Simulated assay, not measured.
Amino acid sequence: MLSVILIIKILILITAGPCGITLNSSIVAVQLRHWMKGVNLGECDQITLIMGFTNVLLQCYFVLDGTIDTLELYEHLDKEFIFVSYTFFFFFISLWVWLTAWLAICYCLRLVNISHRVFIILKKTVPCWITQLLLGTVVILAMINIPIFWTMNTKAKQNTSFTSPVDFFNYEPNIKYLSFAAALGCCLPTLITFLCMGLSLMSLLRHVQRVKQNISQSWSGKMKTHAKACVTIFLLMALNVFFFLTVFIFILLQLYIGNNWDTLFWSIIMASPSGQAVILLLGNSKLQSDIL
């Protein structure tokens, strides 16, 4: 007879998996359809396209990992498979955060007017080189995360069987290398997102002050654009932080507590790609109308 926890995990797999894959696949399909019709995708549309594709792969990984964990198949897998799966996870999470940072940068450059020379140069160059910048981000993150596979101390554990994914953490990682990868892959893009969010918010407040002095349709339209961009970046940034905290707590629960609360946090992790897709749709009226 199936336990309640097992039934809940199966229901989450059945609902969250297809939902996340469907929403993000719709975003990818719409953007690809525009591109195939000869429409020149802007920098924000290109980032949204890669975000959707990344979320599809990430959701597929969560479904596969959740299925293996639910059916307790880890003891039949080699340790190399576990290492590769976690390397895949670290890479796409880092890419997820960096894509949010690039989207925040593009919104900031589009909405904020600063007369500083560096800002003007960035405003002219980033939109033109966004494809190369995104490709370079993927390559650099791959170069950083793939070597994690070889930095693990595989002599730290005597047996080679895995009864759960937590057994992966019984191996001794290179703390210095993981700290470097976390700083460059997660902390730096989060700080960039915070900075761009602050600049965009300041620009929005300046528009509010101008509207109070001189109400017009043009200022109203710009203010709506600023507000929607700020809300989108804030929600994406909040989702990233919430996701990392959830993963951290989930790992601690499995390592030290091991109670049924880890099912709740696992469910939140499963639903995160769907949450990002919803935020992208709410922040892009054109994308939302095309999908509908």
Rank of each mutant, 00 (worst) to 15 (best):
I5G: 12
L6K: 12
I7A: 05
I8H: 10
T15D: 02
P18N: 01
C19N: 07
I21N: 07
T22L: 14
L23Y: 06
S26R: 10
S26E: 08
S26K: 08
I27L: 03
V28C: 07
K37M: 11
K37H: 05
G38D: 04
G38R: 00
V39T: 15
Q46I: 03
T48W: 00
F53Q: 05
T54I: 08
V56Q: 04
Y61K: 11
V63W: 02
D69Q: 07
D69H: 11
Y74L: 04
Y74E: 15
Y74G: 00
V84L: 09
T87H: 01
I93M: 12
S94H: 09
S94A: 12
A101Y: 00
L103H: 11
N113Q: 15
S115R: 11
S115P: 10
H116Y: 07
V118P: 01
I120C: 08
L122G: 15
K123T: 08
K124E: 14
I130S: 04
I130P: 07
T131K: 14
L135D: 14
I140D: 05
L141T: 04
F149P: 02
F149Q: 07
W150A: 13
N153R: 08
A156I: 03
Q158Y: 05
F162N: 14
S164A: 09
P173E: 03
L178W: 11
A183V: 15
L184Q: 03
F194D: 11
S200T: 12
M202L: 09
L204Y: 13
H207L: 15
Q209F: 06
Q209Y: 05
K212A: 15
K212P: 00
W219M: 11
F234V: 00
L236C: 13
L253R: 08
Q254H: 12
L255P: 00
I257H: 06
I257D: 02
N259H: 06
D262Y: 08
L264C: 05
L280K: 04
L281T: 03
G283I: 01
N284W: 00
S285N: 13
L287C: 06
D290Q: 11
